[in-house]
Simulated assay, not measured.
Amino acid sequence: MKMMLKVAAMLVALAVIGYWALPQYRSLILGAIPIAATLLCPLSMVAAMWLMRRGEDEPRNSSSPPARPDTRSPEQHI
Rank of each mutant, 00 (worst) to 15 (best):
K2T: 04
M3C: 02
M3F: 08
M4K: 14
M4W: 04
L5G: 06
K6L: 14
K6G: 15
V7I: 15
V7M: 08
V7A: 05
A8Q: 09
A8K: 12
A9W: 13
M10H: 00
L11S: 10
L11M: 12
V12M: 12
V12I: 15
A15M: 06
A15Y: 04
A15R: 08
V16K: 04
V16R: 12
Y19N: 01
W20V: 08
A21L: 10
A21E: 02
P23Y: 03
Q24L: 11
Q24F: 10
Y25N: 00
Y25T: 10
Y25S: 03
R26C: 01
S27E: 13
L28N: 11
L28Y: 15
L30H: 01
L30Q: 11
G31M: 13
G31F: 11
G31S: 01
A32D: 07
A32P: 04
I33T: 07
I33L: 14
P34G: 13
I35P: 00
I35T: 08
A37K: 06
T38W: 07
T38I: 12
L39M: 11
L40V: 12
L40F: 06
C41T: 14
C41R: 12
C41W: 15
C41V: 15
L43Q: 08
S44L: 04
S44I: 12
M45W: 09
M45S: 05
A47W: 02
A47P: 00
M49E: 11
M49A: 11
W50V: 06
W50M: 02
L51T: 07
M52K: 11
M52I: 07
R54D: 14
E56F: 14
E56S: 01
D57Y: 02
D57G: 01
E58A: 12
R60V: 09
N61Q: 11
S62A: 04
S62C: 07
S63E: 13
S63A: 08
S64N: 10
P65H: 01
P66G: 00
P66A: 08
P66Y: 03
P66S: 09
A67C: 04
A67Y: 08
R68P: 08
P69N: 09
D70W: 01
D70P: 00
T71E: 06
S73D: 06
S73Q: 10
S73T: 14
P74Q: 13
E75F: 12
E75G: 05
Q76H: 08
H77M: 05
I78T: 08
